[in-house]
Deep mutational scan, measured.
Amino acid sequence: ITIHVNGVTYHFDNPEEAEKFAQKMAKTYQLKMEIHNGEFHME
């Protein structure tokens, strides 16, 4: 699972971890999250 946050790329093997991380980042930084081709993009 690949997550892009403001141009920084994070890779996770565990989908649950990826989702937790994505939600935490979105909440902490008030980010808008989109999913493209199974990759999370946040800005």
Results as ranks from 00 to 15, higher is better:
Ile1Ala: 04
Ile1Lys: 05
Ile1Cys: 14
Thr2Arg: 13
Thr2Glu: 04
Thr2Lys: 12
Thr2Tyr: 13
Thr2Cys: 14
Ile3Cys: 14
Ile3Phe: 06
Ile3Pro: 00
Ile3Ser: 00
Ile3His: 01
His4Val: 06
His4Phe: 08
His4Asp: 02
His4Glu: 03
His4Trp: 12
His4Ser: 03
His4Asn: 04
His4Gly: 02
His4Ala: 04
Val5Tyr: 06
Val5Met: 06
Val5His: 03
Val5Ser: 02
Val5Asp: 01
Val5Pro: 00
Val5Arg: 01
Asn6Gln: 11
Asn6Pro: 02
Asn6Thr: 07
Asn6Glu: 11
Asn6Leu: 15
Gly7Glu: 04
Gly7Pro: 00
Gly7Gln: 06
Val8Leu: 10
Val8Ile: 09
Val8Lys: 13
Val8Glu: 08
Val8Asp: 07
Val8His: 09
Thr9His: 09
Thr9Ile: 10
Thr9Cys: 15
Thr9Asp: 02
Thr9Pro: 14
Thr9Ser: 10
Thr9Trp: 05
Thr9Val: 11
Thr9Gln: 12
Thr9Met: 11
Tyr10Cys: 14
Tyr10Lys: 01
Tyr10Arg: 01
Tyr10Asp: 00
His11Gln: 07
His11Gly: 02
His11Glu: 05
His11Thr: 08
His11Asp: 03
His11Ala: 07
Phe12Met: 01
Phe12Tyr: 02
Phe12Gln: 00
Phe12Lys: 00
Phe12Ser: 00
Phe12Trp: 02
Asp13Ala: 11
Asp13Pro: 10
Asp13Tyr: 11
Asp13Phe: 10
Asn14Tyr: 05
Asn14Pro: 01
Asn14Lys: 08
Asn14Arg: 08
Asn14His: 06
Asn14Ala: 06
Asn14Met: 06
Asn14Ile: 11
Asn14Val: 09
Asn14Gln: 07
Pro15Ile: 12
Pro15Trp: 14
Pro15Ser: 09
Pro15Glu: 06
Pro15Tyr: 12
Pro15Val: 11
Pro15Met: 13
Pro15Asp: 05
Glu16Ser: 09
Glu16His: 10
Glu16Ala: 09
Glu16Leu: 10
Glu16Phe: 11
Glu16Pro: 03
Glu17Met: 08
Glu17Gln: 07
Glu17Tyr: 05
Glu17Leu: 10
Glu17Val: 07
Ala18Phe: 07
Ala18Gly: 07
Ala18Asn: 00
Ala18Tyr: 02
Ala18Ser: 02
Ala18His: 01
Ala18Cys: 14
Ala18Val: 04
Glu19Leu: 14
Glu19Val: 13
Glu19His: 13
Glu19Ser: 10
Glu19Met: 14
Glu19Thr: 12
Lys20Asp: 07
Lys20Met: 10
Lys20Val: 10
Phe21Asn: 00
Phe21Leu: 01
Phe21Val: 01
Phe21Lys: 00
Ala22Met: 10
Ala22Lys: 05
Ala22Tyr: 07
Ala22Cys: 15
Ala22Glu: 01
Ala22Arg: 08
Gln23Asn: 07
Gln23Ser: 08
Gln23Leu: 11
Gln23Asp: 07
Lys24Thr: 09
Lys24Glu: 13
Lys24Ile: 13
Lys24Ser: 06
Lys24Tyr: 15
Lys24Gln: 11
Lys24Pro: 00
Lys24Ala: 09
Met25Arg: 01
Met25Cys: 14
Met25Pro: 00
Met25Trp: 08
Met25Thr: 01
Ala26Leu: 11
Ala26Gly: 06
Ala26Asp: 06
Ala26Lys: 07
Ala26Gln: 06
Ala26Tyr: 13
Ala26His: 05
Ala26Ile: 12
Ala26Asn: 04
Lys27Arg: 08
Lys27Pro: 11
Lys27Gln: 11
Lys27Asn: 06
Lys27Val: 11
Lys27Phe: 11
Thr28Arg: 14
Thr28Gly: 02
Thr28Lys: 14
Thr28Phe: 14
Thr28Cys: 15
Tyr29His: 13
Tyr29Pro: 14
Tyr29Asn: 12
Tyr29Thr: 08
Tyr29Ala: 08
Gln30His: 13
Gln30Ile: 03
Gln30Asp: 08
Gln30Val: 03
Gln30Asn: 10
Gln30Tyr: 09
Gln30Glu: 11
Gln30Ser: 04
Leu31Gln: 05
Leu31Thr: 04
Leu31Lys: 03
Leu31Met: 07
Leu31Ile: 09
Leu31Gly: 07
Leu31Tyr: 09
Leu31Cys: 15
Leu31Pro: 09
Lys32Leu: 14
Lys32Thr: 14
Lys32Met: 13
Lys32Trp: 14
Lys32Ile: 14
Lys32Phe: 13
Lys32Asp: 12
Met33Pro: 01
Met33His: 01
Met33Arg: 00
Met33Gln: 01
Glu34His: 13
Glu34Arg: 11
Glu34Leu: 12
Glu34Pro: 01
Glu34Ser: 12
Glu34Met: 12
Glu34Tyr: 15
Ile35Asn: 03
His36Glu: 06
His36Phe: 10
His36Asp: 03
His36Cys: 14
His36Met: 06
His36Lys: 12
His36Tyr: 11
Asn37Leu: 08
Asn37Trp: 10
Asn37Ile: 09
Asn37Gly: 07
Asn37Lys: 04
Asn37Asp: 07
Asn37Tyr: 09
Asn37Ser: 05
Asn37Ala: 05
Asn37Glu: 05
Asn37Phe: 10
Gly38Ser: 03
Gly38Arg: 02
Gly38Trp: 06
Gly38Tyr: 05
Gly38Phe: 06
Gly38Lys: 04
Gly38Cys: 15
Glu39Ser: 05
Glu39Met: 06
Glu39Lys: 05
Glu39Arg: 04
Glu39Asn: 04
Glu39Thr: 05
Glu39Tyr: 06
Glu39Cys: 14
Phe40Glu: 02
Phe40Ser: 03
Phe40Thr: 04
Phe40Lys: 03
Phe40Pro: 03
Phe40Met: 11
His41Ala: 02
His41Gln: 03
His41Asp: 03
His41Ser: 05
His41Lys: 04
His41Glu: 03
Met42Asn: 02
Met42Cys: 13
Met42Glu: 02
Met42Gln: 03
Met42Pro: 04
Met42Asp: 03
Met42His: 03
Glu43Gly: 09
Glu43His: 13
Glu43Asp: 05
Glu43Pro: 05
Glu43Lys: 13
Glu43Val: 15
Glu43Phe: 15
Glu43Ala: 11
Glu43Tyr: 15
Glu43Ser: 12
Glu43Cys: 15
